[in-house]
């Protein structure tokens, strides 16, 4: 049964963006300093997920995919979801850890990814309905569009299952 479910998961690899409409499962595997940012549109019942690697480009990057940088990923996600229901969108933010501890001169990439995404989401007034970021542990997650169920995994811990359908739809009415 579990395997059947897993085959339906659309996994966003590093720098990738995946979209699901009506139903489907979106996820990321093994997020370290990377951040999975998922935008959900309750009216369109659609979700788009980017696996963000870095906050912003450092100079020109001809090889970049839109999902690679926070600054390009968020506009790309909004465009994929279309414009009509922009005010009702909600965000889920997962990742941005610093898995190697006791580093000297750390680049703080995980923390900077999270900070940049907060800034970008706030500027667009998109509320974050679920966030699990920072710390020192890698994360994997799956979001089931049909049920609103989020499954979050970390090594050495049992999976966390959260049903976000209420948070998503409740805020949808308010928006």
């Amino acid at each position: 049964m579990l395997q059947v479910v897993r085959t339906e998961v659309q996994l966003a690899g590093m720098g990738e963006i995946k979209v699901a409409r009506g139903a489907g499962v979106l996820g990321c595997i093994g997020l370290g300093s990377c951040v999975g940012v998922l935008l959900y549109d309750p009216v369109a019942a659609a979700a788009a997920l980017a696996h963000v690697m870095l906050p912003e480009p450092n100079g020109a990057d001809p090889n970049a995919t839109p999902g690679k940088y926070a600054t390009t990923a968020l506009p790309a996600l909004l465009e994929l979801l279309g414009t009509p229901y922009a005010s009702q969108r909600k965000a889920i933010l997962i990742g941005g850890a610093e898995v190697f501890q006791n580093r000297q001169n750390t680049l703080r990439i995980g923390a900077r990814n999270v900070e940049k995404l907060h800034e970008l989401l706030q500027a667009r007034r998109i509320p974050i309905v679920f966030e699990d970021t920072g710390g020192h542990h890698g994360r994997s997650f799956e979001f089931d569009l049909a049920s609103g169920q989020l499954t979050l995994r970390k090594v050495g811990e049992p999976p966390q299952v959260r049903n976000l359908s209420h948070a998503l739809s409740m805020l949808a009415k308010a928006g």
């Binding site: 093994g30 690697m53 898995v99 190697f100 890698g138 994997s140």
Partner: peptide, 9 residues
């Protein structure tokens, strides 16, 4: 940690 989290970081 997870192999992918270490390598990707």
């Amino acid at each position: 940690d997870m192999a992918a989290a270490l390598l990707s970081s």
